[in-house]
Design a binder for these strands. Structure first.
Lengths: 150, 150
DNA sequence: CCTCATTAGTACGATGTCGCACTAAATATA
DNA sequence: TATATTTAGTGCGACATCGTACTAATGAGG
């Protein structure tokens, strides 16, 4: 008789998928006009990691294919959030920089989004999140390596 | 001076998004021909929760819009994994049942997928996952309610 | 130098996702 | 009973995602 109980791993990835869905929707509801969570992610990434990185580096950071990042960055450019300059070290490549508007929009996005997660922050303290993050990060890194190994 | 450090909440949702990406890709690499992780999810759901539920109920379980689930279920039907029967209690509605083939495919999928997560299981014991799950489930439920409140 | 392989980015096509609008059925209200 | 409202599912259109194939530039090996 085959085991019909799903392993906790499937439950885990199922929950993660749903949380991803919900958080993305919740975030995008709070974002201005045509802005997507992917744009928000790029802006945050640039602020955190630093500007001047290349599209490929950003794609790797988010673990999405190059083509997807091309599309996403195109959206950011169209909204005037970033600008793409030629890479002085490599003529094939580009460098991504935030525009003034990009920085401003990002600030207001963080504020807007924060209000959307007020209740969330009440139920899940920063401390609790901080204890969760190392495990998730470790998971991400492991899956990342597993992907490279393919 | 504005705070440029992202709150742990954004990091959290960022990590979850990436893990979702990676786990989905990793899973689909192991799946036969045109089968997607969403199909796999539906099959697992039917086995776990029980057959005979309605498309809407499944959509709610996965927190995706009705239209998305219509599309996903259509794929499952096309692959001969499920069949949709009329709902005897409500002529508007349908009931979803696994076919014999669906059950068989699901079994082999679980086996196939399990091999893909062998290394993962080594690094992350079931016990560790079990301690993680309650928090994630709580999160999912909270976000779920927050969405309804909109 | 001169191939040849590799790499960064993109155009294109296929497909998944999802909001909107619609139909048909059920339910509430009068 | 008759009408209005709500609900389940779907067709359609817009768009994000991503694999394939391509161009241009770099680097490696002769």
């Amino acid at each position: 008789m085959p085991d019909t109980r799903p392993s906790p791993y499937f439950v885990l990835f199922n929950e993660i998928g749903i949380i991803h869905q919900l958080s993305r929707t919740l975030l995008e509801e709070r974002l201005p006009d045509g802005l997507l969570s992917s744009h928000f992610g790029v802006l945050n990434h640039l602020v955190r990691v630093g500007e001047g990185t290349t599209p490929l580096a950003i794609a790797r950071a988010f673990q999405v294919p190059k083509t997807t990042m091309t599309h996403t960055l195109g959206g950011c450019v169209k909204h005037g959030l970033i600008e793409m300059r030629p890479n002085p070290d490599d003529a094939r490549s580009k460098c991504i920089w935030l525009t003034r508007k990009g920085r401003e929009i990002r600030e207001s996005m963080v504020a807007q989004a924060a209000t959307g997660f007020e209740g969330f922050a009440e139920h899940f303290s920063e401390e609790r999140i901080e204890t969760l993050l190392p495990v998730l990060t470790e998971m991400r890194q492991f899956l990342d390596k597993a992907r490279d190994a393919t």
